[in-house]
Design a protein around this nucleic acid. Structure first.
Length: 608
RNA sequence: GCGCCCGUAGCUCAACUGGAUAGAGCAUCCGCCUUCUAAGCGGAAGCGUGUGGGUUCAAGUCCCACCGGGCGUACCA
C-alpha cells in the first residue's frame, strides 16, 4: 500500500468540503507530499495556501486548521500541526508504522500493488548497430531501457522490450565496400566479427582522409559514394550484396549475446531494420496516398511537426526541415523504417505507449516522426522519446566509432570488474590491518564479487542520474565504492545477510508469521518509514520513466539501515521480542534492497 | 540564422503537477573499530541556483530578454 495514497484518501473528504473550486481537488490532494524537511514530520499537506481566499481576508493558517479539524478520526496520524504559513505537518503514529511494517513482511511484492489498469508498453532500447562491437555509447540506452522494462513489468504492466537493431543501414554499405576491396580472408575466417569491425574502421579512415572529420559527408567523397552505392544495391536486392549481408549476420548477432548476458539484459525481440525493409515501399505509398507525404526536390518527405514543408529559402531558414522517407535515389531512410516499425508494433502488440530510449541528438527526428505517425493513424498511442545526454570522452567530445580508440563495452566491464576487485582487496587489507574481522573469500567468490560489484557500479552510475546533459565518462568515478553507489547498497545487503548467517537464523518465519514490530528508537522508526515508502518509490520511477528516483530511494533506505546498524544491536538486543522485531526489519531491508536493485538490473552477493 | 537540451557548493549530481531555512555524495578538516562486515557511522566547513526583468501569497522550477555550453538543422542512422 502506497503511504501517499492512503494519506490522500484520508484528506479527500475534508479538502473536498472546504475547496472553493471542486475541480481543483485532485491538484490539492497532489500537494500532499513527503516532508521536504524531516523536522516538519513525515509528510506535509500544502493545500491550504492555494485554498485560502485572501481577497476575503481568509488566512491560509485558518484554512489549514479547518482542514485538520475536518479530518476523520484515525490512528494513522499523530494530531497534525499547522505552521504559520499554512503548511500542515503530518507525522505517522508509531503504532501505524509498526502494524504496517508487520503486514509488509508478509508481502512478496513489498507493498507494491499491481496497477488497476495495466497498460501495454513497447520499449525501444539498446539499438546497437550490428557488425560493430557495442561501445560505451550503447550503455545508456540498454540499461535505462532494461530498468524501465523491469519497473513497469513489476507494476503489472505488459511490457515488450524491442531491440531495434541497426542491421540494414549505411554501415553495411561500408562493410560491403570494405569486404569487397580490403578484406583479409584469413582474418575473416578466424574471427569474422573482428574483421568486420576492422573493415568498418578502415573504410571510415579512408573516407576521413578524403574528407576530414565529417563522418558521412555529402556527395563527392569517392569512398563514401562507393559505400552508398553498395547500400543502395543491398536495398535494391542485389544478389551478391544480399548474400554477403546474410553471411555477415549470424556472426554479427552472435557477437551481441555475451555482452547482454553479462549486463543481465534480456530483450524480448530484436526486430532490426532489415525486418522492416520489405514494408518500406508500402509505407511511402500509403503516406503519399493519404496525403501525409509529398514529393519535394525529387525526394518524398513528410512535413515537420508543425505540418509544414518549408520550400522557399526563407522558410527553410525559419522552419524545421521535413523528414525524408524516400531519397532521390529511391533508397529509404530511418524515418521510413521507424514509421514501418510503429505500424508493426501497433498491429502486433496494440501498445498504449511506445517509449524510445534513445540519445538526445535524435530529438528532432522523433518530434517529426511522432507528429506524423499520429496523423497517420496512431494518435491513440503515447509516444515518448526518453532522451539522455551523450557520453563524452576525456576530450569532452562525443564518443564516436569513427575516431577509433572507442572503449568497447566488454573492455569497459572488464576494467570495471578489475578495478572493483582491486578496491575490494584494498578494503580487506585495511580491515585486516586494523584487527577487524575479515571475511576470507575464496578465489571464486572474489571473482563473483568483482563481477557483480563492477558491473553494478557501471550500471548504477548511469541509472542514478536523469540528466539530459552530456557527461564525461570516468571509470574511476563509476567504480567509486563510497557514497551513493551500487557498492554501498550491495554492502548494506551483505551486512543484513551477515546477521542472519551469524545468528544461524532462518528468515522464513519473519515472512510467514511475522513477530510484533517494536519501534523503540529513532533509527528503528526511520527505517520502518523508509521500508513503507518502497511502493511510492516504484510508482514515482514508473510515472516519470525515471530509474533515478529508485536509486534515490535505495540510497535513503541503505543510509537508514547503516544508521540502524550502528545504533541497534540485533542479535544481542536486550529482549527476545526486540531481537525478533529487529530481525524482521533487517530481513525486510535485505528484501527491499535486493528487489530495488533487481529493478535496476543490478545483482547482489551474500557476502563481500 | 532557426530549433532543442542544459547552466544549482571546488567536483559529480538531487530538489516529486511552484511550497517552509535549496539538499546529498566526492574531495577537505575533526572524531569513532574488545559487540551482528569501518566498502561503515558522527561532526565541521562550503552554494542562494549564469545575468537582468516579470507573473505569483510563494520561483531553482513558469514567462521575456540576454550571456555561456552542448546537440540538431532535407537525401547518414
Amino acid at each position: 500500500m502506497n503511504l501517499l495514497t492512503q494519506l490522500r484518501s484520508l484528506f479527500e473528504p475534508a479538502v473536498t468540503a472546504l475547496a472553493p473550486d471542486k475541480a481543483k481537488v485532485p491538484d490539492l490532494l497532489g500537494a500532499i507530499k513527503p516532508a521536504a524537511n524531516a523536522d516538519h514530520g513525515d509528510y506535509q499537506a500544502n493545500c491550504a495556501m492555494a485554498m485560502a481566499n485572501r481577497a476575503a481576508g481568509q488566512q491560509p493558517q485558518d484554512v489549514a486548521k479547518a482542514i485538520v479539524a475536518a479530518l476523520p478520526a484515525n490512528d494513522v496520524l499523530e494530531p497534525p500541526t499547522v505552521a504559520e504559513k499554512g503548511f500542515i505537518n503530518l507525522r505517522l503514529t508509531s503504532d501505524f508504522l509498526s502494524r504496517s511494517v508487520r503486514v509488509l513482511a508478509t508481502d512478496p511484492k513489498l507493498g507494491v500493488v499491481p496497477v488497476a489498469k495495466p497498460r501495454t508498453f513497447v520499449i525501444d532500447l539498446s539499438g546497437p548497430n550490428v557488425a560493430k562491437p557495442l561501445h560505451v555509447g550503447h550503455l545508456r540506452s540498454t540499461i535505462i531501457g532494461d530498468s524501465l522494462v523491469r519497473i513497469l513489468r513489476f507494476l503489472g504492466h505488459t511490457v515488450i522490450g524491442d531491440n531495434h537493431l541497426g542491421d540494414w543501414g549505411t554501415q553495411f554499405g561500408i562493410l560491403l565496400y570494405g569486404y569487397k576491396n580490403h578484406r583479409d580472408d584469413a582474418a575473416f575466417k578466424a574471427d569474422p566479427v573482428r574483421e568486420l569491425a576492422r573493415l568498418y574502421l578502415h573504410v571510415r579512415n579512408l573516407a576521413k582522409i578524403a574528407e576530414g572529420d565529417d563522418e558521412d559527408g555529402a556527395a563527392g567523397n569517392p569512398v563514401m559514394d562507393a559505400c552508398r552505392t553498395e547500400t543502395s544495391k543491398l536495398h535494391a536486392g542485389d544478389a551478391e550484396n544480399v548474400a554477403l549481408w546474410q553471411s555477415f549476420m549470424p556472426a554479427c548477432l552472435k557477437m551481441l549475446e555475451p555482452i547482454y548476458a553479462r549486463l543481465d539484459v534480456k530483450i524480448d525481440h530484436a526486430l532490426g531494420e532489415s525486418f522492416y525493409n520489405p514494408m518500406l515501399a508500402g509505407v511511402v505509398t500509403d503516406m503519399l496516398t493519404k496525403g501525409i507525404a509529398y514529393e519535394s526536390n525529387g525526394a518524398v518527405v513528410i512535413p515537420n511537426a508543425k505540418g509544414v514543408i518549408p520550400r522557399t529559402a526563407d522558410e527553410q531558414q525559419r522552419e524545421e526541415p521535413p523528414a525524408i522517407i524516400r531519397k532521390r535515389d529511391g533508397a529509404f531512410t530511418y524515418t521510413t523504417t521507424d514509421l514501418a516499425t510503429i505500424k508493426h508494433r501497433a498491429v502486433t502488440w496494440k501498445p498504449d505507449a511506445i517509449l524510445y530510449v534513445v540519445g538526445a541528438p535524435q530529438a528532432l527526428h522523433f518530434k517529426t516522426l511522432f507528429a506524423q505517425a499520429k496523423r497517420w493513424g496512431y494518435a491513440h498511442i503515447e509516444f515518448q522519446h526518453l532522451q539522455f545526454g551523450s557520453m563524452l570522452g576525456a576530450d569532452r567530445r562525443m564518443f564516436a566509432t569513427r575516431r577509433g580508440g572507442v572503449l568497447e563495452l566488454m573492455a569497459l566491464l572488464d576494467d570495471a570488474a578489475r578495478l572493483s576487485l582491486q578496491k575490494y582487496e584494498e578494503s580487506v587489507a585495511a580491515r585486516r590491518a586494523s584487527g577487524r574481522k575479515v571475511y576470507e573469500a575464496s578465489a571464486a567468490e572474489k571473482a563473483e564479487i568483482a563481477e557483480v560489484v563492477g558491473v553494478g557500479a557501471v550500471k548504477y552510475a548511469d541509472l542514478s542520474q536523469n540528466r539530459t546533459t552530456d557527461y564525461v565518462f570516468d571509470l574511476d568515478k563509476m567504480t567509486a565504492t563510497v557514497g551513493n553507489t551500487a557498492t554501498y547498497m550491495q554492502y548494506a545487503y551483505a551486512r543484513c545477510r551477515s546477521i542472519f548467517r551469524e545468528g544461524g537464523i532462518d528468515e522464513a518465519r519473519f515472512r510467514t508469521n511475522p513477530p510484533a514490530v517494536l519501534l523503540t528508537v529513532p533509527a528503528e522508526r526511520a527505517l520502518a518509514l523508509q521500508l513503507l515508502k518502497f511502493p511510492e518509490a516504484v510508482d514515482n520511477a514508473a510515472a516519470d520513466y525515471a530509474p533515478h528516483l529508485l536509486t534515490a530511494y535505495l540510497w535513503d533506505l541503505a543510509k537508514s539501515y547503516s544508521v540502524f546498524f550502528e545504533n541497534c544491536p540485533v542479535l544481542n538486543a536486550v529482549t527476545p521480542e526486540l531481537r525478533d522485531s529487529r530481525l524482521l526489519l533487517v530481513d525486510l531491508v535485505s528484501r527491499a534492497i535486493k528487489q530495488a536493485l533487481d529493478l535496476l538490473g543490478i545483482r547482489v552477493v551474500e557476502r563481500m
